[in-house]
Design a protein around this nucleic acid. Structure first.
Lengths: 210, 210
DNA sequence: TAGGTTGCTGACCGTTCGGTCATTAACCGC
DNA sequence: GCGGTTAATGACCGAACGGTCAGCAACCTA
């Protein structure tokens, strides 16, 4: 790969991020067990031994990939919630769009698929992900729903189950794009899908009077 | 396991199904690469060598698991569609409930998670699954939507994207139950989730006049 | 440019696992 | 029972892969 052609370079600062990006891409594509450390190293432009200078081993890489990935995006969504004024539905639209630009159309969109596939093999990592991504994300959307119900904009629904139904289409969109979409003809245009999703949501949540 | 205690038995007829069930359970739990053939054999009450009397190898087992699993359920849904009379929303409710009883609450509910995780490692199998499960399933729900629009019961929406949004919560329900739900406190009661889903769908699809 | 520090390398090791096959023993017809 | 057929076994093999480490070379400082 970078074999004899490129000369060795010493770039201690950049290696960890490059390794994490390579690891994320390959874990998402092939799964944890089917990904070889040597492939990760090669993709990061480095040899296998170097990987061990920065990470304790394969499992440590996996943990870092999951734990670093989506936390910044969640902080953004929380900030958006805190700063929003206007209708609750506009808030939901803004949240969905911010999520799409920060996660959906970036390489981080692979993390949900990866976590789904590996949760039962890494219960501790799954637990971290649940507490720090799933719970926080649910809380943001639950707050938006409650705001809409309080304003009389949405009808009264049990918030817990409603949040789960609400976020499912967003998750399936990214999961799909990292799995079957790679083998079959192009399916959805993501923007059209999201518009349809928001449109159906508007009707599904609207209070009867409106 | 069945070691020295149980005597050998010759049960040529039953072995393939027992092996397929064991393989499905373990593939769903651990993923394809992390599942050992010996574990599958042991769970099926058989030795590793026996497995090779019935399947050519690990990949053949995987193919069989995917290809046998959901086809009968799809035929059922198609029959339901063909035989239904009444409102389109009742048809959708009936489809969702039949799907839940034939897939959602059985071991076959693991297949979507498995296929999502492994699609990119087995493009041919993914293609089979797409053609024979995804497409057929989409077609059934698309027909239900079109019927509702023709009756003036649903508003006019672009059917393709609408189907994708429509089925996403059903898929996420089963995917969730086979991944993160195993590591975290119990989340949804499936029946309540499905009721909420149908309720939101009713509003999301309803024609404005109604 | 000489010497020292350290980021980087890749050959090597041990284990694990998919796959094979000679052997064993359950069943059946006579 | 007895022999023949074949389902079932598990010890074995080779390849692949995670992980190690002794040596190398890029960079720095004087």
């Amino acid at each position: 790969m970078s074999a004899a052609l490129l000369p060795r370079k010493r770039r201690k600062e950049d290696r960890p991020n490059e390794l994490l990006e390579a690891a994320l891409d390959l874990f998402v594509e092939k799964g944890f067990a089917a990904t070889r450390l040597e492939d990760i190293a090669t993709r990061a432009g480095v040899s296998k031994g170097t990987l061990y200078l920065y990470f304790a081993g394969k499992e440590a890489l996996f943990k870092a990939v999951i734990q670093d990935g989506l936390i910044p995006a969640l902080a953004e969504l929380e900030a958006l919630l805190a700063g929003h004024e206007g209708s609750a539905f506009d808030l939901i639209r803004a949240l969905v769009e911010r999520w799409w630009s920060m996660v959906g159309e970036t390489r981080y969109s692979g993390i949900p698929k990866l976590m789904i596939a590996e949760a039962r093999n890494f219960p501790e990592v799954a637990h971290f992900y649940y507490e720090n991504v799933v719970r926080r994300g649910r809380k943001v959307f639950a707050a938006a729903l409650e705001r809409g119900m309080a304003r009389g904009e949405f009808r009264a629904l049990e918030v817990g189950a409603c949040v789960d139904v609400l976020i499912a289409p967003m998750l399936m969109l990214v999961v799909w794009r990292h799995s079957l979409a790679h083998c079959c003809l192009a399916e959805q245009e993501p923007r059209a899908y999201l518009e349809m999703y928001l449109e159906m949501l508007r009707g599904g949540l609207a209070a009867p009077g409106l």
